[in-house]
Design a protein around this nucleic acid. Sequence first.
DNA 1: CGAAATTTTGACCGGATGGACAAACGTTAG
DNA 2: CTAACGTTTGTCCATCCGGTCAAAATTTCG
Lengths: 213, 213
Amino acid sequence: MTASVEASAPRRTRIQKEKRELILEAALEVFSANGFRGATIDQIAEAAGMSKPNLLYYFRRKEDIHETLMQRLLDTWLAPLRELDDVGDPLTELRAYIRRKLEMARDFPRESRLFANEILQGAPRIMPMLEGELKTLVDDKAAVIRGWMRAGRIVETDPYHLIFSIWATTQHYADFDVQVRAVLGPERGGEERFEDAACFLEQLFVGALAPRT
Amino acid sequence: MTASVEASAPRRTRIQKEKRELILEAALEVFSANGFRGATIDQIAEAAGMSKPNLLYYFRRKEDIHETLMQRLLDTWLAPLRELDDVGDPLTELRAYIRRKLEMARDFPRESRLFANEILQGAPRIMPMLEGELKTLVDDKAAVIRGWMRAGRIVETDPYHLIFSIWATTQHYADFDVQVRAVLGPERGGEERFEDAACFLEQLFVGALAPRT
DNA sequence: CGAAATTTTGACCGGATGGACAAACGTTAG
DNA sequence: CTAACGTTTGTCCATCCGGTCAAAATTTCG
């Protein structure tokens, strides 16, 4: 009997694992480019090289695909912030965080856009996570940053808005990629734009946060 | 005879002007919250308090509404950058620009989200404008900023990425509003978040750009 | 007022889309 | 080999949605 492939105990065959990965990869492409409502199951199925009913055998509803994609995304998405280390040198830590986030914007732009789409629509599917896991993590790291400030190791400012500004500036290069490339033009808009961005952002944040002597 | 209400020579009656405004206002609400494909004509019609066929009497196609909205948006959207003045004091000018952009994020979040949605989807409808009008404007203002840098009035850095970072950080408070509020929580996530943001961003950019003595 | 023009509405259409289903096909292991 | 299980497909359905149309209601203006 063909029981649900998405049962609580995921006892999956080899084919199921492979095909589900294939579908998720295709869905990432389609969802990130068109948003949830803008994407159709047919599009995803075609991108995954299978028929619609076949796809629906692995994920019973369109929303299930999106949900699975989101869950996976969030883990990797917050990893860089998790790595922000209390004991390291503040400026080195923040520089590394910015670099990692920028690398993610460069290497996983689809994931960034998927996330941006979700938030733009009011985060209907991940609100609990934002108010729970995310808030907890940010509270935690904001406390770390505040500790650095209190110790005079970086300039005093609002740690929450500092984190927001790092998110905004780095993700901008994924989410607003077409605009960035259009403005930079063909000469400066190649892959080197990420190098330039890294250089600029380091200057911006280090310049503002390094303690004035 | 009911000729097109959107003819090249817009000879519009009182009712047409009123109703078109009503529709555009409703469409801004719906498009910005759901994206172009996610929005339905029925939703817009209901938000505008009229029937779907009635709405379609004023705008023949869904895309016409979106296009009109976009055209209007772009003018006001770029106004703050246009005001960046060559002859003023660099830090004062940049501070004013940041403040204006942040006020727009606060006062016109729907417009910001409409724009973000469009760019996220690859800017299919406004690409020419990005490569034309926008690029020209940014090139122009980047030259102004570079002039300030050459003159040693602000720290030398990449003017394009500086502009990007101002866009990113300010628009973040409109586009990622739900996330910002979720992370800040009920206490600090009220309307004062824009004050806090303004304060932080001023510190960030002035801190990084003010010439080191 | 009354005719002409404008505005509004209900009914309708065709295509897209999410999803159901059973039958056909393939795989695996006893 | 073959029965049980897993996979794939064609077909079908209901709904949604963008858009049309003609007739009814309303406004405008001579």
